[in-house]
Amino acid sequence: MIQELDPVRRADVDRASRLAAERVVERARRERLEDVMVATVDSPVGTLLVAATPRGVVRVAFPEEPEEAVLEELAADLSPRVLADPRGMDAVRRQFEEYFRGRRRRFETRVDWSLAPSGFSRRVLEQTARIPYGTVSTYGEMAKRAGSPRAARAAGNALHDNPVPIVVPCHRVVPASGGVGRYGGSEWRKEWLLRLEGWLQG
């Protein structure tokens, strides 16, 4: 160690480097170097982590999933160029906020299906994306529309693993036998969303 350099060692660079890092993100966005941008959205069902690629929203994670783990997954499965970019996600975040205030009935944002399995599961999710706000359908019906009428259970599994819940409204699929059924993001959230949309009362 040399004492002469103590002022350099001691200088507080936290704030300056944070601002500089934010400008890096701004420029990365303008120069289209971001392969995946992520931001958090506060909501009545907890803080959501939302990720998008230039093709659309690719992932929505509930708070039970650690942020670090979700970022690792995005880096491994899509691209390591994952940036935290709340400003870049403004339009998407606004849509979530409007939805949770009951002022938005459908998401205008596109969906990037990269993290959804292909084949039957993907077809189930695509059909689910068409279920209108405030209405529900059944696992059996989704299986049928996806081309395999007897695969209600498989349809349920596909919906349970939905990478983009809320945007692709898997909460609108319920068992034919009654009740709200399973939900990847805990059943209380499914009930909460169905109540928000007016399908469940009280």
Partner: peptide
Amino acid sequence: SPPPFARFLEEHRAQVYRFLLAAVGPHDAD
């Protein structure tokens, strides 16, 4: 693949900034 760039940036921003601040001064460090 390396870790998510967001984490890489967060982990190294302070050190890189300190290095540049001392190396080129506040005007050009940014």
